[in-house]
Simulated scan of single mutants.
Amino acid sequence: MARHGWGGRPPASDAEARQRIVDATARCIDRHGVAKTTLSDVAAELGVTRQTVYRHFDRIGDIVGEVAAQGAEAFVDRLIAHLQGTTDPAEAVVEGLVFCVRTIPTEPHLSLLLQVGDSGAFARGATTADAIAYGAAMLERFPVDWAAAGITGDDLGGLAEIIMRLLTSLLQRPGEPPDEARLRALLGRWLAPALAPSRAPAGRA
């Protein structure tokens, strides 16, 4: 790679270049917000041309998605640690949703995951296949025996979709977070009963 740009320290590989672009984008988002962060801003942050960035990412939305995905990995680890010892499916889902509603608005990079539009990590929101698959993979890490609860296969994906829809709705007004006690009561009344082992739907063939 040419030695101009990149602050005089060109990346040693394409993988390093991509990571430095992601890191630069995160800094731009922290300064300007996602709506005002452009590919030109990222290029300027790195001291390279727009064409250099385009060699690694097709559009700014793809970079923003990677920023969000990397932030989410650490967040999911924290969520799973928070849920340790909560083996009841209903309790785990309710507690997980409350934790997400409490935490995501305070961490801008995580909020990118659930944004709707071209700048969102899942582009078309919480009902895309990518978002649902991500949610199902997260549920599989819960300290819950889903099979024993009768939730397997497509049912786990359906649960993930409902959770992603609920979470997106609850986070649409980050300045007005729901009261946690009221949220727990609401989820406990209307969501938890569907996850009781005796009433959980059988897995589809």
Rank of each mutant, 00 (worst) to 15 (best):
F75W: 14
A126N: 05
G61H: 03
R182M: 14
D62N: 04
D154W: 14
H56P: 06
G125E: 00
S119N: 14
E95N: 05
L39F: 08
A69N: 11
V42D: 00
V42P: 03
E91M: 08
V93Y: 01
S111E: 12
R173C: 03
G65I: 05
E140A: 05
G158A: 15
R189G: 07
L187V: 02
P197M: 08
C28L: 11
P201K: 01
V34M: 12
R204H: 11
D62H: 11
V53H: 00
P143A: 01
A35H: 13
A72C: 05
T128G: 00
A81T: 01
D118L: 14
A35W: 13
C100Y: 00
T152L: 09
A126E: 06
L186M: 08
L112D: 12
E91T: 10
Q115S: 15
E176W: 06
H32Y: 15
I80M: 10
Y54Q: 10
I60L: 05
C100K: 01
V22M: 04
K36E: 12
V34L: 08
P197R: 00
I21T: 02
Q84P: 15
L156I: 04
F142I: 00
V42H: 00
D41W: 02
G65A: 11
D145Q: 04
S169Q: 10
A35K: 15
I80S: 04
A44W: 15
D77P: 03
A17Y: 07
T49M: 07
W190H: 11
Q51P: 12
V67M: 03
L170R: 02
R55T: 13
A92W: 13
A123G: 11
L110Q: 04
P108C: 06
T86N: 12
A72N: 13
T168I: 08
T152A: 13
A17C: 06
A202Y: 10
D23S: 04
G203N: 07
G175Q: 05
R59P: 13
A92R: 01
A121L: 04
A12G: 03
E161N: 12
Q51L: 14
P201V: 02
K36S: 14
C28Q: 08
G65Y: 05
L186P: 05
S198Q: 11
P108M: 06
T52R: 03
R102G: 07
A136H: 13
G203L: 05
L39Q: 08
G153V: 00
Y54V: 10
T25K: 07
R102E: 10
I132Y: 02
L97A: 07
A92Y: 06
P197W: 09
A26F: 10
V34K: 15
T106M: 07
A69L: 09
P193T: 00
G33T: 08
W190T: 13
L79N: 15
D145A: 07
G203D: 06
G117W: 05
T127C: 12
T128A: 02
M138P: 15
E66S: 07
D155G: 13
I151A: 01
A92V: 08
E161Q: 15
A12E: 12
R102C: 03
A126M: 05
G120Q: 06
M164I: 01
L110E: 10
P177S: 02
V144E: 00
A200H: 01
S13K: 09
L39P: 09
V64G: 05
L167S: 09
W6P: 10
A123Y: 11
E66T: 07
D77N: 08
L159T: 03
L183C: 05
A194Q: 02
H56I: 12
G61I: 08
R3C: 15
A205G: 09
E140R: 11
I29R: 12
P108L: 03
